[in-house]
């Protein structure tokens, strides 16, 4: 974490992009324009977060095999863009992409740290929960990740990347927080649905409640970068937002349009939030007893969750 983080807030830019389906080169060129714009902003953002599947679109089905890239290549392409337009000015970049490694395909997000000398890949998170129901079909084409990592962002300190449905399972951000995360960053692609709501689609309200709940339960920042635009009739719900550790929505974008969302984070708000609502500390104390419960399905011999 930056040494002056108590005095100067961390500057974040969430890029709510609307990529054209499968048009990787075109979307990369569009990202160059976005980076050029970001490089002219004063003050310069210190962290840029892009959504899930930011340069390809989300619903690719079998085309995921044609659009996926190795993490090294993807990181190189993204960091080169920044170097081209911003020179050696340091920045951190998080972005979702379809990853291939040794013939296996993943829905992944990368975290890059660029300083004056080098570009480092600090984390590649592979989506754990691949929605495969209703309109979703991820597991047909992709493999699951198997770990929640916490890595040390030079800007934010201990940070965890989760992708979309990962954040819907309360145990996942809980594990991230237990492993030390002070910030949870969620690239996402969330098709909107539910018109019974009050002034917005229900799925947007649900996401907001969910992310605020994560922030408040664990006393951490939550940054959410959502894909925007329609994909074959399925409208992505944008709504990129930054949430403080006390659950306050610092900023939130509209659902439909591409945009850049800026936020300033006072990182010491984490200590204040956790002191005022010490749920994470309480959980640390009780968790060993909870996990040793012999009624939990994985401790009852070889039975599955349904007891079979």
């Amino acid at each position: 974490m930056r040494e002056d983080s108590e005095a100067v807030p961390a500057r974040v830019a969430l890029v709510q992009s609307k990529p054209r389906k499968g048009a990787y080169a075109e979307n990369l060129a569009a990202l160059r324009a976005v980076f050029s714009q970001l490089a002219t902003l004063e003050p310069l953002p210190e962290l840029i977060v892009l959504p899930e599947a930011a340069l390809t679109g989300y619903f690719l089905e079998g085309a995921v095999y044609e659009s996926a890239r190795g993490a090294e290549l993807f990181g190189h392409e993204i960091s080169s863009l920044w170097r081209d337009v911003a020179g050696q000015r340091p920045v951190e970049i998080a972005a979702g992409f379809y990853e291939v490694e040794n013939g296996s395909y993943y829905n992944s997000a990368i975290w890059l740290a660029l300083d004056e000398r080098e570009t480092r890949i600090l984390n590649v998170h592979r989506k754990l929960f691949l929605p495969t129901y209703g309109v979703f079909d991820e597991e047909r084409f992709l493999s699951r990740g198997n770990r929640v990592s916490v890595f040390d962002s030079p800007l934010l300190g201990p940070t965890s990347l989760l992708i979309c449905e990962d954040a819907w399972h309360s145990i996942v951000p809980t594990i991230a927080a237990l492993k030390g995360a002070r910030a949870i960053v969620v690239p996402s692609a969330a098709p909107g649905r539910g018109i019974e709501g009050d002034g917005e689609l229900l799925s947007i309200s649900r996401w907001r409640e969910l992310l605020r709940g994560i922030a408040m339960e664990h006393g951490c920042f939550v940054l959410y970068a959502g894909l925007a635009g329609f994909e074959g009739g399925k409208g992505m719900t944008g709504s990129s937002r930054a949430i403080a550790p006390d659950g306050e929505i610092l900023v939130e974008a509209d659902a439909r349009e591409g945009c850049i969302v800026r936020a300033e984070l006072f990182l010491d708000d984490v200590e204040i939030a956790r002191a005022n609502l010490p749920l994470l500390g309480d959980l640390r104390a009780v968790l060993p007893d909870l996990l040793a419960d012999d009624e939990l399905p994985w401790l009852r011999g070889r039975t599955d969750a349904a007891g079979r």
Binding site: Q16, L250, V251, C259, I260, R262
Partner: peptide, 9 residues
């Protein structure tokens, strides 16, 4: 150019 959304002052 993308519109920039800033937090409320």
């Amino acid at each position: 150019m993308l519109p920039v959304v800033d937090p409320p002052k």
